[in-house]
């Protein structure tokens, strides 16, 4: 049985950890990622015919390198290239949450969008047309309530399909201003020449235009030891009251 890797991304307070706990149960541990001072929980579980290893990325508002959290989450998606990235959205504040989903879609196409707190949203009079979101984003989109275990089967079904390659999503490309688009086109071939096509060139071009020097640092580290897996430092799992 193959073990697929799933990364869990999302804004803080979206119930990301609730979903993580629901899926992994007690088989989880916390680890330090690549020497950075950011804790990520990791857990294993099986669902249907497949085994999964799930990494709960730090909750962030974006995936630019504004903070150590954001850098860690971004580096994981770009460099570790998980089989599937689940983006957890809060149904009651979709606008800001979609912002993050769109950023993830620029980095990888193997994404399942998961609209959490759907029951809460219904209670508050928010109606969400999932098919429309799925159509506009170009990736599967599932509504769930992690705490009440609603929609988990549907979510995992899509995750398995994307992981196994049964469906390969074609995510929307964010249209930028003409000026930016021109510069991106200019840069893409140079990036492909320098870095190869292992990383999404459009995304890297945008980050470089953005002056994201943190990304360059990370790239440089990978280039120096391209085949060595990320070192992981285990630390004791402390009992905490604030997750």
């Amino acid at each position: 049985m193959r073990t697929y890797t799933i990364a869990l991304a999302g804004n803080p307070n979206t119930g990301k950890s609730t979903l993580f706990n629901t899926l992994t149960g007690l088989r989880q541990h916390t680890g330090n990622w690549a020497g950075k001072t950011v804790l990520m929980a990791e857990g294993e579980f099986t669902y249907g015919k497949s085994a999964f290893r799930m990494i709960d990325l730090p909750g962030t508002y974006s995936l630019y390198s504004n903070s150590a959290d954001e850098e860690v989450a971004r580096d994981y998606i770009i460099f570790e290239q998980p089989d599937v990235t689940i983006v957890v959205l809060d149904a009651t504040s979709l606008e800001r949450n979609l912002n993050l989903a769109l950023q993830v879609l620029e980095m990888t196409s193997r994404v399942v969008v998961c609209v959490n707190l759907i029951d809460e949203a219904k209670k508050r009079g928010v109606r969400i047309d999932l098919q429309m979101i799925s159509k506009r984003l170009g990736v599967p989109c599932v509504a769930i309530s992690a705490r009440n275990k609603i929609g988990i089967d549907a979510l995992m079904e899509q995750v398995e399909k994307v992981a196994s390659g049964e469906i390969s999503p074609e995510p929307v490309q964010i249209p930028y201003s003409k000026e930016i688009e021109e510069k991106v086109k200019e840069l893409q071939p140079i990036i492909a020449q320098t870095l190869g096509t292992r990383f999404p060139t459009r995304w890297i071009a945008l980050r470089l235009l953005d002056g994201d020097e943190g990304l360059l640092k990370s790239l440089r580290e990978r280039m120096q030891e391209p085949t060595v897996p990320v070192k992981r430092e285990r630390i004791g799992h402390e009992q905490t009251i604030c997750h």
């Binding site: 630019y64 979709l94 606008e95 800001r96 979609l98 912002n99 989903a101 769109l102 950023q103 928010v126 109606r127 969400i128 047309d129 999932l130 429309m132 979101i133 506009r136 984003l137 929307v172 964010i174 249209p175 930028y176 201003s177 000026e179 930016i180 510069k183 200019e186 840069l187 945008l206 470089l208 235009l209 953005d210 002056g211």
Partner: peptide
């Protein structure tokens, strides 16, 4: 290619424009 700080603002604004337009269609 990148001149100054304005690019980040434009990028984020463009992403927000797209999320807003998706929300307009999909959320009531």
């Amino acid at each position: 290619a990148a001149e100054g700080n304005a690019i980040r603002d434009t990028i984020v604004s463009d992403i927000y424009r797209l999320s807003r337009s998706i929300c307009k269609e999909a959320v009531t």
